[in-house]
Amino acid sequence: MTDALEPTDLQDKYIVPGLERGLRLLGEFSRNERTLSAAELARRLQVPRSTVFRLLTTLEMMGFVERTDGGREFRLGMAVLRLGFDYLASLELTELGRPLLDRLRDEVNYPCNLVVRDGRSIVYVAKSVAPTPFASSVNVGTRLPAHATVLGRVLLEDLTLAELRDLYPEPQLEVFSESTPKTVEALFDMVQRDRQRGYVLQEGFFETSISTIAAPVRDRSAKVVAALGTTIPASRIDPERLHGMVEQVRSAAGELSRLLDYRPSEGGAVVNL
């Protein structure tokens, strides 16, 4: 019988020493010390200089550090900046979007969500739950297929047919309901109609008992970076409320886009990058 591992023992068991050293090395750079030599890094990390050279070579190959001063010193590379910018962008999106979701939820009295695309999936990054008996089956972090969901269709609007074919090389798409497009060409035609309309309203698209209204969120480059929408626990939406709810969703998405510094081109047309 073996004793259970203590939390610190478990932590030590799964630590990757090389990765730990690489991250510690990156952490030595700061605003006041933007460049450091391999010798100085070896002294600070208390590891052999040969180990530091291997770490630096790996990090340089991946763009996390770059040589300066004729190759004698190193500084942080663009890959570190990209990681930071991506983090700040995601933080900005969710932090700005959450109060808008809460306001939209209060207006429509249904759950509201903000999602982004990760390859062929959508990922829920923020949600606002309405005080109704309807319990949403999704949480922050939930992943669903982009091509088979209303919110996913919004996130595919910027892709060309060639880009969609690269994303979905298979001849037949996986079908989740009678409404799921079965080919890339059918998906492309669908999302282009969505794009022209400026929003998506679909009754029972992914699940027969659920309807969704969604609109795109764009950033300063005019690219769709998120989809904002409300989920309605009914296969059909009350026609008397329909127009108002669509406009409320579009208004919330438009306001979040403006907060992300999106400015429509002249005439209100969306820039197709």
Rank of each mutant, 00 (worst) to 15 (best):
L259F: 07
F74K: 01
F176E: 07
Q202F: 01
V108C: 07
Y87H: 12
V140S: 08
V47R: 05
V217L: 10
M62R: 13
V246S: 07
G27S: 15
S137P: 10
T57A: 15
P181N: 11
Y87L: 14
S179K: 14
R43H: 11
L155D: 11
E240I: 12
A186W: 00
C112I: 03
F74Q: 02
R241M: 11
T94M: 11
G152F: 02
S251G: 09
F85C: 00
L76E: 04
L260T: 08
L5K: 03
L83H: 11
G71K: 06
L144G: 10
E170W: 05
A148P: 06
R49S: 12
P133S: 08
R195W: 10
A234S: 15
L91H: 11
S251P: 00
I210R: 11
L114N: 04
E157D: 09
L173V: 06
D118S: 14
V217A: 07
T2P: 11
S137M: 12
L164N: 03
V47A: 09
G70A: 09
V116Y: 02
V129C: 02
L151Q: 14
V225L: 04
L201F: 01
Y110L: 01
A253F: 06
G70S: 08
V52E: 01
A162R: 12
L159F: 05
E60V: 00
D9Q: 10
A89M: 07
R236Y: 09
K223R: 14
A234W: 05
L76A: 03
I213L: 12
A222R: 10
L93I: 02
T160K: 08
S137I: 12
V175R: 14
R43Q: 14
I232S: 03
L256F: 02
K127Q: 15
G254D: 06
M245K: 02
A215C: 07
R24T: 03
Y124I: 08
T160Q: 10
L144V: 02
V108W: 02
L273A: 11
L36F: 03
R263E: 08
M1Q: 10
R241D: 11
N139G: 13
F188D: 12
Y168F: 15
Y168L: 08
L5G: 00
M61Q: 15
P145S: 03
V175I: 15
R195G: 02
D3I: 07
A269F: 13
T68C: 13
I210A: 09
R34W: 07
P133C: 06
M1F: 06
A148K: 01
T35N: 08
V52A: 05
P133H: 06
L104Y: 03
L10M: 12
R31P: 00
G268A: 05
V154G: 03
V140E: 15
D238Q: 07
R143T: 12
G244K: 08
L201W: 02
Q248T: 05
T231Q: 06
V125Q: 11
P171V: 10
E266C: 00
V52C: 03
L26Y: 01
L45F: 07
L161W: 10
V115Q: 13
S136H: 10
F134E: 03
V140F: 04
